[in-house]
């Protein structure tokens, strides 16, 4: 029995009988605490959401909570303004975020899946040491790696945004960022998948071996199909991580509007528009749309990814 079940009053009492009322009254403080804390937690988000639908005049002179007294003033003009081309490049940044996040998810997940398999089911010298090293790398500050990678990109490969855009090949300007995210995401990807693979019953592998399945067959026909939940968790985790990333994008692609993702763009807007601008509220909410949709629809997988990744620093 869970604590929740244990703590439930054994309410066999008939409804509205004195005992029923007593049972339920005694739990009021609990409900008030739970709902109160949750509501308090929601206040910052709700405040921003309400503000984003208020005109500039309202935002600058009164708190968001006063808006409910006068609901007619709500407007979507903040959104139309912020999304209109020319002022903020937010639309461009939105697509850029996709162009960055999708490949930067596909790469570490697929490379990681192949690499995780030997860590889980093959014996080779150095396996445990390598795995431990990967776990260690999970917590290494990425800052430690920026300067050499960046100078390699710029001074040796001449991979600057300008040079790469000049080639005219679509997608090329993001390649430095994709590869960097792949490198940074791989330790976690391998860690999560190897642990999942390892938990598959060994009988399945032995049975497949007797049935005549080779390494490739076992991987593609047994391991991968059985690992769909883990792969889904990883994909969502990595996608949100990259989508929400500011630092890595800032370092490797910087603020050039044609390539910068939403986070960089939004951070830039706080400087260019000045903090407290009415447009910022709308821009912030716009940047949250995709993560919130992913979170609300695939929450189960996301939480599982977080749980598995509790060692990721």
């Amino acid at each position: 029995m869970t604590v929740a079940a244990a703590a439930q009053p054994t309410s066999s009492a008939t409804m509205f009988s004195p005992r029923w009322i007593a049972d339920h009254l005694s739990r009021w403080p609990l409900h008030i605490a739970v709902i109160g804390l949750t509501a308090a937690w929601m206040v910052p988000t709700i405040g921003l959401l309400v503000s984003s639908f208020r005109p500039f005049s309202g935002q600058a002179t009164s708190g968001w909570w006063t808006a409910f007294a006068n609901p007619t003033t709500f407007t979507i003009s903040n959104y139309t303004q912020v999304l209109s081309a020319g002022t903020t490049n937010l639309g461009q940044a939105f697509f850029n975020s996709f162009m960055i996040s999708v490949p930067a998810t596909v790469l570490p997940v697929s490379i990681g899946a192949f690499a995780a398999y030997p860590f889980a089911w093959m014996k080779f010298p150095g396996r445990n040491g390598l795995f431990l090293a990967l776990v260690g790398l999970l917590a290494v500050p990425l800052q430690l790696t920026f300067i050499p990678v960046l100078s390699f990109y710029v001074q040796h490969l001449h991979w600057t945004t300008n040079n790469l855009e000049a080639t005219g090949i679509p997608g090329l300007p993001w390649v430095p960022l994709w590869l960097a995210h792949a490198g940074y995401g791989l330790p976690f990807s391998i860690y999560l998948l190897a642990n999942f693979f390892r938990a598959l019953p060994s009988d399945l592998f032995e049975s497949a071996e007797i049935d005549g399945a080779g390494t490739l067959t076992v991987f593609f026909r047994i391991v991968l199909p059985l690992s769909v939940p883990a792969l889904a968790s990883l994909v969502i985790f990595q996608f949100l991580w990259v989508w929400n990333d500011l630092l890595v994008a800032l370092i490797y692609v910087g603020g050039t509007p044609s390539v910068a993702p939403l986070t960089v763009n939004l951070a830039g807007l706080t400087t260019s528009l000045g903090q407290g601008s009415n447009l910022l509220t709308a821009a912030a909410f716009f940047s949250m749309i995709v993560p919130l949709i992913v979170f609300l629809s695939l929450q189960r997988y996301f939480v599982r990814g977080i749980l598995a990744g509790s060692v990721k620093g």
Partner: peptide, 22 residues
């Protein structure tokens, strides 16, 4: 209630910073 508390995990720190600026 758990998913409401958890929701900020899904948004970027930039958006989080803006929310708290307000």
């Amino acid at each position: 209630v758990k998913s409401l508390i958890f929701m900020p995990m899904a948004i970027s720190s930039v958006a989080l910073g803006l929310i708290w600026d307000f």
